[in-house]
């Protein structure tokens, strides 16, 4: 993986725009705060944050107990956003997510009681334990940023960020998300076990829940939306677009994958790379940004085939990065 540490020179270079260093400082602060709760996972935290800045949704896939829920909590708390958690179970109904209309006795007819989806950060916990019906209710809301029930369309709050967690699909009792729905998530990340040092710190330190309550928001909603707008405007040169296209073309042409990346995936890659560049304090995207977000963006979209399947342990994204030269 390329070095993702921020180059101070780059910051100085873009000093003309006073907004960017300020924003970067804010982002660093949040990442630092969340990192103090989820130890040794700064990379994943940055990816999660990039996902938020790119206005995408995040899927965290890992075994229970590695801090998936904690990460979602910490992110929401640090951002000062409204947070709601939905525990997905096999008897969950779409109404449990979207809300229901209940008759109001005072005579005003039916009144809509919004469901937990009407929050800025929604944690859909163990999303693959619910039936496809409930899953699709969530995923449609994610895609449209609005909810339509009983003929009425209601917009979801801004910003709107869904963090879904799921257990690896080989675990018992799951309804794995189909590929078409996986595509709705901008990124999928895995947390993995902490390293020895981080784990020791975790064991020695305070209870995580207490720490979570002590967190104070360090970014207001206005700034966050500003950052999201800013991320959209990060410049991508034609040389960089060439690189993105070559990456995508390789997945379509090589025999290593069942299907190539879709144009939506290419867009996702570009948006994520823009957010990453912003977090790095740059006004333009460089190939390293693309490489940094690539594992998160393509990991759940590419199904390995041919030689790659048998070669266990070869990371799909790393393989892709190595195969495609930077033009």
């Amino acid at each position: 993986m390329p070095d993702t540490g921020r180059n101070p020179q780059d910051v100085a270079n873009s000093a003309a725009d006073r907004g960017i260093p300020f924003m970067t400082t804010q982002i660093d602060k949040i990442v630092g705060q969340v990192s103090s709760i989820i130890l040794g996972k700064e990379r994943q935290i940055r990816l999660a944050f990039a996902c938020l800045l790119a206005r995408g949704h995040l899927l965290i896939e890992d075994i229970p107990g590695v801090g998936k829920t904690m990460l979602a909590h910490a992110l929401a708390a640090s951002l000062g956003l409204g947070f709601q958690r939905i525990q997905f179970t096999s008897d969950l109904l779409p109404a449990d997510i979207l809300g229901v209309s209940i008759y109001n006795r005072e005579g005003r007819g039916f009144q809509f009681h919004p469901g937990p989806i009407f929050n800025q950060v929604v944690l859909a916990d163990e999303v693959n334990r619910a039936t496809p019906k409930a899953q699709s209710a969530l995923l449609e809301a994610m895609e449209e940023h609005q909810v339509t029930t009983e003929g009425e369309t209601r917009r979801l709050p801004q910003p709107f960020f869904v963090i879904a967690t799921q257990n690896p699909s080989n675990q018992v009792g799951t309804f794995p998300l189909p590929e078409s729905q996986l595509d709705r998530f901008l990124m999928r990340i895995e947390l993995g076990y902490p390293d020895t040092e981080a784990e020791r710190a975790l064991l020695q330190g305070q209870d995580r829940r207490d720490l979570l309550e002590q967190l104070s928001p360090c970014l207001d909603v206005k700034t966050l939306i500003e950052l999201q707008v800013r991320a959209r405007r990060i410049y991508t040169s034609s040389a960089l677009l060439d690189y993105v296209q070559e990456l995508v073309n390789y997945t379509r042409r090589a025999a290593d994958y069942v299907n190539g990346l879709s144009p939506r995936a290419a867009l996702a890659l570009l948006h994520a790379a823009r957010a990453w560049a912003l977090m790095d304090g740059r006004e333009h995207v460089v190939p390293e940004d693309v490489q940094a977000v690539l594992p998160g963006v393509v990991g759940h979209r590419l199904v390995p085939a041919g030689q790659l399947t048998r070669a266990n342990g070869v990371d799909i994204a790393e393989h892709l990065i190595k195969q495609v030269a930077i033009p």
């Binding site: 390329p2 070095d3 540490g5 180059n7 020179q9 460089v286 190939p287 390293e288 490489q291 990065i321 190595k322 195969q323 495609v324 030269a325 930077i326």
Partner: peptide
């Protein structure tokens, strides 16, 4: 490396040949 971005390359060079770092960067 063909797939090595310029900044990543510069970082690697600075590690291997610190005396070149200022010019390379």
């Amino acid at each position: 490396e063909p797939a090595e971005g310029p900044s990543a390359y510069a970082a690697r060079l600075s590690r291997l040949r610190p005396e070149l770092a200022p010019k390379v960067s």
